Amino acid sequence: MSKLAFFLNETDETQVEFAKRVGVSQGTVSKLCAGQITPSLPLAVRIARATEGKVPVDAWVRDTA
Score class of each variant (00 low, 15 high):
4 L>E: 03
43 L>S: 02
41 L>P: 03
31 K>C: 03
1 M>Y: 07
22 V>E: 09
50 A>R: 15
11 T>F: 08
35 G>S: 04
43 L>D: 01
43 L>E: 03
35 G>L: 00
21 R>H: 14
12 D>C: 11
25 S>D: 13
21 R>V: 09
40 S>M: 06
32 L>A: 10
9 N>C: 12
33 C>V: 02
20 K>C: 08
64 T>H: 04
61 V>C: 04
46 R>C: 06
38 T>I: 00
11 T>I: 06
37 I>L: 07
45 V>A: 08
60 W>A: 00
51 T>Q: 09
64 T>N: 05
5 A>C: 07
64 T>Y: 04
44 A>C: 02
3 K>S: 12
8 L>G: 07
55 V>P: 05
32 L>S: 08
15 Q>N: 14
39 P>M: 04
24 V>T: 10
9 N>R: 15
17 E>L: 10
64 T>I: 09
48 A>E: 13
35 G>E: 02
34 A>L: 13
63 D>G: 08
61 V>T: 02
29 V>S: 01
14 T>I: 10
3 K>E: 13
30 S>R: 05
32 L>V: 06
58 D>S: 13
26 Q>F: 04
5 A>R: 14
10 E>W: 08
5 A>Q: 15
5 A>E: 15
65 A>L: 06
14 T>A: 07
28 T>A: 11
31 K>L: 05
55 V>N: 03
31 K>M: 08
32 L>R: 06
40 S>N: 06
20 K>Q: 14
9 N>Q: 15
33 C>T: 04
48 A>C: 12
63 D>C: 08
6 F>L: 14
52 E>H: 12
65 A>W: 08
13 E>M: 14
45 V>I: 12
12 D>R: 11
31 K>H: 07
55 V>M: 08
20 K>E: 13
11 T>L: 10
28 T>S: 14
65 A>V: 11
50 A>G: 08
38 T>A: 02
36 Q>S: 13
21 R>Q: 15
62 R>M: 12
54 K>G: 06
32 L>D: 04
46 R>A: 13
21 R>W: 11
27 G>H: 09
50 A>H: 10
51 T>F: 09
42 P>V: 00
56 P>T: 02
5 A>Y: 12
49 R>E: 15
11 T>Y: 11
62 R>G: 11
9 N>F: 11
5 A>F: 07
60 W>C: 00
31 K>T: 09
39 P>L: 00
26 Q>H: 14
3 K>M: 10
31 K>S: 12
44 A>F: 03
51 T>L: 06
45 V>C: 06
61 V>D: 04
54 K>A: 13
34 A>I: 00
59 A>M: 02
38 T>V: 06
65 A>C: 07
52 E>L: 10
44 A>R: 01
18 F>E: 12
63 D>I: 07
36 Q>K: 10
10 E>D: 15
6 F>Y: 11
21 R>S: 14
60 W>L: 02
30 S>C: 06
64 T>F: 12
62 R>S: 13
15 Q>P: 13
64 T>A: 07
36 Q>L: 10
25 S>A: 05
5 A>L: 13
22 V>H: 05
18 F>C: 14
23 G>F: 04
8 L>Q: 10
20 K>F: 13
65 A>D: 13
6 F>A: 09
9 N>H: 13
52 E>W: 04
40 S>K: 12
29 V>W: 01
59 A>C: 02
26 Q>E: 15
56 P>D: 04
27 G>P: 07
5 A>I: 05
59 A>S: 10
55 V>L: 09
